[in-house]
Design a protein around this nucleic acid. Structure first.
Length: 261
DNA sequence: CTCCATGTTTAGAA
DNA sequence: CTTCTAAACATGGA
């Protein structure tokens, strides 16, 4: 799930549920998700503190405490948040569970444990340490164009490079390229100014529209590729069979009719 | 059993 | 130095 629109949806969810709650207890079911940070240090930095604000950058979600410290969520491929009230049971694969003073809880759920949950006292430094470029919704057309001019290789790979712009992954890069009528293996260095502009506009449009439906594929516009992004499916626009291809070990999908090379 | 899956990192080859 | 590929991480679902 978690690319920019999914993580933005998690942010809004967190804002509407766990924010302004004081942490009473921290259960770490999967200590390996904390990386180098010890369970004790993690618990010490959270217990007794209050979640006061949140920030998202690319695929990362930051929850700020009243003391200036930050809880950092990264979701890998299968991570999500679930807020629990009353006797509601924590879902299967809950890896971290924050319990609040009022009895409600926030579960960090992650089937495959590919993400991370850590702490940082400086978000900007954290972003720098992780080589993250500007958030995909923050950079302007000028930066977008000059980054395109500074790289070689396929446009899909370029869009997914978190050092260039943060937030776009395998699924949403396919959607953006589909909406922009660009073949995923089109060389980024050979994009015209006009194509770059279209790509930039479509990137915003796709991110905005998918955030508006909380990244739910079943609620996305009719002419979106994402709900048809599997083998044997057909293009929602022209009905041509969708092509699957491999790009550095991952599967990409496109319509050979709407996105000619 | 096999292959595939939304992410990131790393090693090695061009 | 840049770019690309495969593999690894951990775990399920088809």
């Amino acid at each position: 799930m978690p690319e920019l629109p999914d993580v933005e949806t998690f942010k809004q969810y967190l804002d509407h549920t766990a924010l302004h709650h004081t942490i009473d207890k921290v259960s770490v079911e999967a200590p390996e998700m904390l990386g180098e940070l010890s369970t004790r240090a993690f618990q010490r930095r959270l217990t007794g503190h209050t979640l006061e604000r949140s920030r998202r950058h690319g695929k990362y979600l930051f929850a700020g405490l009243e003391d200036g410290d930050w809880l950092v969520f990264h979701f890998g491929m299968t991570g999500a948040l679930k807020y629990l009230e009353g006797e509601e049971q924590a879902p299967r694969y809950t890896r971290i569970l924050l319990s609040f003073k009022d009895g409600s809880r926030l579960a960090y759920v992650n089937t495959r444990k590919l993400g991370k949950v850590v702490m940082t006292d400086d978000v900007d430094e954290f972003l720098h340490q992780h080589d993250l470029g500007p958030d995909a919704l923050q950079l302007d057309l000028e930066q977008f164009r000059s980054q395109a001019r500074a790289h070689r290789g396929s446009v899909k790979t370029w869009l997914m490079n978190q050092e260039i712009l943060a937030g776009i992954g395998n699924i949403y890069s396919d959607e953006i390229l589909f909406q922009a009528h660009l073949h995923p293996e089109h060389k980024v260095e050979s994009l015209s100014d006009q194509e770059i502009k279209t790509l930039y506009r479509k990137m915003h449009e796709v991110l905005d529209k998918t955030i508006a439906v909380h990244a739910d594929p079943s609620a996305m516009p009719r002419r979106y590729l994402i709900p048809h992004r599997k083998k044997g499916e057909h293009c929602p626009v022209c009905k041509t069979p969708i092509t699957q291809f491999k790009i550095s070990g991952r599967s990409g999908y496109y319509c050979p009719q709407c996105q000619p090379s």
